[in-house]
């Protein structure tokens, strides 16, 4: 099953704590996940901790799922960082700011491993 969703990124405390520790497992844990509410998770049949693939017009990324009941239906969140960047919109609409929020996305269960930070960066060079 696929979930059609709206993607946003943003800060968290743990992401902040590891801003200068980005080669660590802790950073991966802090920034490499996708949050949605349990109803949405139920729709794609994924348990928390299992991986999902998030795809937008700009790229895709595999990360573990987390539940956050504060998210309304159809809203998914990945903390700001390399995992979120894989799917955000680089177009600035002429004002300098890329699209980090409000991007149409498709989420589905994935059996792939989530990439580490160096693996993600290696794709880009």
């Amino acid at each position: 099953m696929e979930l059609k969703a709206t993607f946003i990124s943003g800060r968290t405390v743990d992401q902040g704590c590891n801003l200068e520790n980005k080669t660590s497992k802790a950073y991966f844990d802090a920034a490499g996940y996708c949050e949605m509410n349990s109803a949405d998770a139920g729709k794609i049949g994924v348990e928390p901790g299992s991986n999902v693939k998030v795809a937008t017009d700009f790229g895709s990324v595999v990360v573990p799922l987390k539940i956050c009941e504060g998210n309304p239906d159809g809203l998914i969140f990945i903390p700001m960082g390399p995992w979120a960047n894989a799917v955000v919109d680089p177009n600035t609409c002429g004002c300098g700011m890329p699209g980090f929020k409000g991007i149409p996305a498709v989420v589905e269960s994935s059996s792939e491993d989530a990439p580490t930070m160096p693996q993600l960066m290696a794709r880009l060079k």
């Binding site: 980005k22 390399p82 960047n85 960066m121 794709r123």
Partner: peptide
Amino acid sequence: GDAGAHFPAQSIARMG
């Protein structure tokens, strides 16, 4: 500042 962590992947690819 960490462009690598906070720019869209497509922008960083240009930096690559």
